[in-house]
Simulated scan of single mutants.
Amino acid sequence: MEAADLLALLDQQQFRRLRVIENLLRERKTVSTLYWGQRYHLLYLVGLAKKLPRGALDAPARELQQRGFITVGETPDQIRLSPAGQAAQAQTRYYQPQTQATWSQLDLMAARQRILLAVQVVSQYAHSTKRYYPLTTDLETRQAVRRWFYQVKSARLSEQTFVSLQKSLEQLPEATASVVTALFTGYQQPGLTAEQLAREQQRTPWEITLMQLDGVMQIAGDAQAEDQPLTRLLRSVWRSPVTRSAQQTLAAMGQGRSLEQIAAARRIKPSTAREHLLEAAILLPRDQFPYDWILTPTMRQEFANVLTGPIDDWQYTAMPQALQDRYAFFYFRLYAIWCDKRGVEDA
């Protein structure tokens, strides 16, 4: 990730922590990381660069600081845009994915690998080519594509696949569709790399990746909506954004049990049960979490009386001691999540 990529993720008003952005990319899904990812509106980044080294954003941040594009907060980890940085961000034609709101519902990396290999296989099959070098992928991807190919193999497979891909790509910006197509490998077409396309289009490789993932999500979403050649291939990479363990805790909460009862029944610590519920609250739409059952009207009113101003400025330890004694940090954080989602979804 380059300085231009980090610049696109920053805000002029809100200090954002580099470690939070880094941990989102690396899929270090602690409740704290997810909460601030929600506050930054950057949850779509989760798991997009799992092999990113720790501290990989430090050099881009230093470059932005040297150029006068950011100011540093109380710690070097906290940064926000300077007026010059805001002007630079506004003047940049940095790509904003149009499908990012649904990225958490799909294993994007697995879907990308399956689509790329499937396109190559179908292209070579259409030209009756049996000897070629398949794309380098993991064993699971190769097995999934092999099973899928023998399930859907027919004389019309190449035509059907082309039509479905064309239909999906037509719904994207022309530049995005061109990038997705250029990254495909097929018969007598080696396919360009993200680095090659970045140089050609004067973008960063990361920006090219975001454009490709936008295309992957569009293709996968269309394949889910109607039966087409890629439907079976991508069916197993759809997922809930919430971990299975957190789903189980949430389901138990829906049965009217207390946190202590849930923890005892599931043989987990009450603190773990609370973390599960906060994870679900952050990652699920507001209407899919039982806020009304957990945050009583009395509790909401008491919090509203003392928690004013920007949500980022709220501090549990700044509340009256009597309120801290009555309500654990869990309820404070859940109230903040609820308020945040109301602001986003009701806007």
Score class of each variant (00 low, 15 high):
Lys269Tyr: 14
Gly186Trp: 10
Gly343Cys: 06
Ala101Trp: 05
Gly68Asp: 07
Thr176Arg: 04
Tyr35Pro: 03
Tyr44Trp: 12
Leu135Asp: 03
Tyr40Thr: 07
Arg19Ser: 15
Asp292Ser: 13
Ile268Phe: 10
Glu74Leu: 15
Ala3Trp: 12
Ala59Gln: 09
Arg39Gly: 11
Glu195Ser: 12
Lys130Tyr: 13
Leu24Tyr: 11
Val237Cys: 14
Ala318Ile: 04
Val163Phe: 14
Met217Gln: 04
Val216Ile: 15
Lys50Leu: 07
Leu250Cys: 04
Ala4Pro: 00
Gln255Asp: 00
Phe329Cys: 02
Ala8Thr: 01
Phe329Thr: 03
Ile70Trp: 14
Ser164Phe: 07
Glu207Arg: 02
Gly73Ser: 10
Trp206Phe: 07
Arg16Gly: 06
Ala111Asp: 02
Leu277Ala: 02
Trp206Asp: 03
Thr249Leu: 10
Ser164Gly: 02
Arg239Glu: 13
Phe15Arg: 05
Gln151His: 11
Leu277Thr: 07
Asp292His: 15
Leu210Cys: 00
Gln65Ala: 14
Ala111Gln: 02
Leu64Met: 08
Thr272Trp: 02
Ile268Arg: 10
Phe289Asp: 00
Pro320Tyr: 15
Leu52Gly: 06
Gln196Phe: 07
Glu226Thr: 13
Thr204Trp: 06
Asp227His: 12
Ala59Lys: 06
Arg199Asn: 01
Pro53Met: 11
Val242Ile: 10
Arg19Ala: 12
Gln78Ser: 12
Ala304Gln: 14
